[in-house]
């Protein structure tokens, strides 16, 4: 049983975006701070720091979770994905990111990393998720710019593309209609 002292720093090892990673942290260090300060990965944003706003959401062992409500020492051996892992290569966007761009699903961008990670993890678990389900997923995030409609439109289109369907099919048409209704 590992026993970690309060004041000392301890090495934590995990998988981060497919590659082995390690960071030295105090037991009280939140995963948000371990990622940002310990590893220099500032794509994960810090908002409310008590689990409400969703800006810090990352995928832990394949499920979306609040990094601000996770102790870094608690992810020893876990498989983490952050927004830095979404793009297939530098200068290119992932499917979900590209859909966000097409639909103007972000303005200031503060909430975006968290929303992308929630949707990325969720669509891997439930590729057939429809509007109601995705509305609930996005409901776990605060976005003060977009009014959410373009975020849902982007999510529905990305889901259709990821399922290998024609992105101009019914799911996306529904998304576009929703956007028009919103505009």
């Amino acid at each position: 049983m590992p026993q970690l002292d309060a004041g000392a720093r301890h090495r934590v090892r995990f998988t981060l975006n497919g590659a082995p990673a390690e960071v030295e942290v105090e037991p009280r260090t939140l995963l948000t701070d371990a990622l940002r300060h310990g590893l220099g990965l500032t794509g994960t944003h810090v908002g409310c720091e008590h689990g409400v706003c969703g800006a810090c959401t990352v995928a832990i062992d394949g499920v979306p979770a609040r990094a601000c409500l996770t102790l870094a020492v608690g992810v020893e051996g876990c498989d983490l994905r952050t927004v830095e892992g979404l793009a297939p290569e530098p200068g290119r966007l992932g499917v979900l990111q590209a859909a966000f761009r097409r639909h103007h699903a972000l303005q200031c961008g503060f909430c975006t990393a968290g929303i992308l990670m929630s949707l990325d993890a969720y669509l891997r678990l439930r590729p057939r998720a429809g509007r109601a389900e995705l509305t609930e997923v996005v409901g776990g995030h605060l976005c003060r710019c977009t009014g959410y409609a373009p975020i849902l439109a982007a999510a529905l289109e990305a889901a259709a593309i990821l399922r290998g369907e024609d992105p101009s099919g019914p799911a996306t048409r529904e998304a576009t209609d929703a956007e028009k209704a919103h505009a």
């Binding site: 939140l30 701070d33 720091e49």
Partner: peptide, 17 residues
């Protein structure tokens, strides 16, 4: 907002906890 310092025990069994 950061927690005050604390020690951390990761229990592997009920007895340890």
């Amino acid at each position: 907002m950061k927690p005050a310092p604390f020690g951390y025990l990761r229990a592997d069994s009920l007895d340890q906890a």
